[in-house]
């Protein structure tokens, strides 16, 4: 049986990370696993790379002793959010890495990290044109031809006027 004070996570390529279970008290996925399958040796996190999991665990370690109430909804507008200097690593990372961290936060169900990465993503998207957004996030998969040629919505021009 595994050590209850620690938890071992296995990434998609078999890399293992053993950390105190308390670090992951905000991860609903981990907490559910500990309750149901905590007697197993290790928890598999199949869709996460070692680099990304290391970053997520760093976030969890930094915030392990935070006393704020767990966040139920990452998009809850009633919960004020202030940038935490301890999270600056997420603000400087490339767009594709940020996307991977967003997905990992969702897979591990850590609402605080989802909120952080989602807000950072939003701040990068804000003010960008559709072309710029496509260029940021894997343009091959965000092909322009997917947009209806007769898109009636109209684009909001940079000058503040709606152009058809």
């Amino acid at each position: 049986m595994s050590d209850p004070a620690n938890i071992t996570l296995v990434t998609m390529d078999g890399t293992t990370f053993t950390v105190p279970s308390a670090y992951l008290h905000r991860s609903k996925l981990v907490q559910d696993w500990l309750r149901s399958e905590g007697d197993k040796q290790a928890m598999e996190v199949k869709h996460v790379t070692p680099f990304v999991l290391q970053g997520v665990l760093n976030f969890c370690e930094i915030h392990a002793e935070d006393t704020s109430e767990p966040l139920a909804d990452p998009a809850d507008p009633t919960k004020p959010f202030e940038a935490d200097p301890r999270d600056d690593a997420f603000r400087g990372m490339p767009d594709d890495q940020l996307l991977q961290f967003t997905m990992a936060a969702d897979i591990l169900q850590i609402p605080e990290l989802v909120r952080l990465t989602a807000q950072e993503m939003a701040s990068r998207i804000d003010g960008k044109s559709p072309d710029q957004i496509r260029a940021m996030f894997n343009p091959d998969d965000l092909a322009e031809e997917d947009v209806d040629s007769d898109n009636e919505m109209g684009e909001v021009g940079e000058e503040g006027a709606i152009s058809k």
Partner: peptide
């Protein structure tokens, strides 16, 4: 990873900001 590989509810969360 592409933006479209993110679950829809996360894209909605991003848009909500």
């Amino acid at each position: 990873t592409c933006l479209l590989s993110i679950p829809p509810e996360i894209i909605t969360t991003i848009a909500s900001y």
